[in-house]
Simulated scan of single mutants.
Amino acid sequence: MIMNEKIKASEVALTGVNGEDLGIMSTKEALQLAKEQKVDLVCLSLASSPPPCQLVGRTDFKQQAIKESAKSRKAEKGPKLKEIRLSAFIEEHDYDTKKRQAERILTSGDAVQLLVRLEKKESQEAKQLIEQLVRELKHCGVQEKGIQVSGKQVIAVLLPIA
């Protein structure tokens, strides 16, 4: 990011601290205005002529840059898959807790894997439990595939709604 005296253009298209358009002015005038307001002059892009610049408080700019880089890193990695384990015969209060947990994960942008470990002949109950949970979480997540029933577990994966 090019700031203050490092901007080599003769004139810049200036935007104020609060986003107001200050028009096109010479770089010297813009730097003088930045010094008067005790802020920095930041060049946003070198692609156009005159380059768009903005008056920004140093701490605001740094915080904004940190947030943007964190966002881009998260988007680069993609959503995480978080697992929630249940039992086929779960109490209502525990069920509600697991549902709220899944909602929180989905709304934060991560995927959820619902997993029920089977002990005896409880595959039907486990499948019904997961179907019910998927129906109740429809407002914040979509099912990736069907419900998978394997030998010792029943699994469903929910993706966050974009």
Rank of each mutant, 00 (worst) to 15 (best):
M1W: 07
M3Q: 09
E5D: 07
K6L: 13
K6W: 09
A9Y: 00
A9Q: 04
V12P: 06
A13M: 08
A13K: 08
L14M: 01
L14P: 03
T15G: 05
T15K: 14
V17C: 08
N18I: 08
G19I: 10
E20P: 04
D21H: 10
D21A: 11
T27M: 06
K28D: 15
E29Y: 08
E29K: 10
L31M: 09
L31H: 07
L31F: 08
A34K: 06
K35Y: 02
E36I: 15
Q37T: 07
D40I: 05
D40V: 10
D40N: 11
L41N: 00
V42G: 03
C43R: 15
C43M: 14
C43W: 03
L44E: 14
L44Q: 10
S45W: 00
S45L: 02
L46P: 03
A47I: 00
S49H: 09
S49L: 09
S49M: 10
S49F: 07
P51W: 02
P52D: 06
P52H: 07
P52E: 04
C53P: 03
Q54S: 04
R58M: 02
K62D: 10
Q64L: 04
Q64A: 08
Q64T: 05
I66P: 01
I66W: 03
I66D: 02
I66T: 03
A70Q: 14
K74D: 05
K74G: 01
A75N: 06
G78D: 09
K80L: 13
K80V: 14
K80R: 14
L81D: 05
L81C: 03
I84W: 01
L86C: 05
S87Q: 07
S87A: 04
S87F: 05
A88S: 12
A88Y: 03
F89K: 10
E91M: 00
E91C: 04
E92L: 00
H93F: 10
D94G: 03
D94Q: 04
D96G: 12
D96M: 06
T97L: 15
T97C: 07
K99V: 13
A102F: 11
A102H: 07
E103V: 14
R104S: 06
I105E: 08
I105G: 00
I105V: 06
L106A: 04
D110A: 01
D110L: 02
V112R: 00
Q113D: 00
Q113Y: 02
L114C: 01
L115V: 15
L115A: 13
R117G: 11
R117Q: 09
K120V: 11
K121P: 12
E122Q: 13
E125N: 06
K127T: 15
K127P: 14
Q128L: 14
L129I: 14
L133G: 10
L133H: 12
R135Y: 11
E136K: 14
E136N: 14
E136P: 04
K138F: 11
G141I: 08
G141M: 13
E144R: 13
G146Y: 13
G146S: 13
I147E: 09
Q148Y: 13
V149C: 05
G151P: 07
K152S: 15
A156Y: 00
A156R: 01
A156F: 01
V157G: 00
L159W: 02
P160W: 00
